[in-house]
Amino acid sequence: MKVVIDRELCQGHGRCFSIAPSIFDFDELGNGVVIGDGSLDENTVEMARLAQANCPEHAIFIEE
């Protein structure tokens, strides 16, 4: 499983990296970025889902 941020949709609300700082970070404009290759395991997938459920722009996708 992998998490990705659609850079076209992200507007930098900053919810993902506040909720799940081990999975997401921000770039110099404050837009969200995925740390590393975004691979998720059973310990991190819930956090990624929570971030997804709070993204106002629906910019986070989890690929099974």
């Binding site: 507007q11 609300h13 900053g14 709070n54 722009e57």
Partner: peptide, 23 residues
């Protein structure tokens, strides 16, 4: 509330530029 996709800082290209500071 755990799921909260609110739009207080707007949506789209004009998303509040000061939202990090405001929070």
């Amino acid at each position: 509330r755990a799921h909260n996709r609110h739009a207080a800082f707007g949506l789209g290209i004009h998303r509040c530029a000061g939202s990090n500071l405001a929070r």
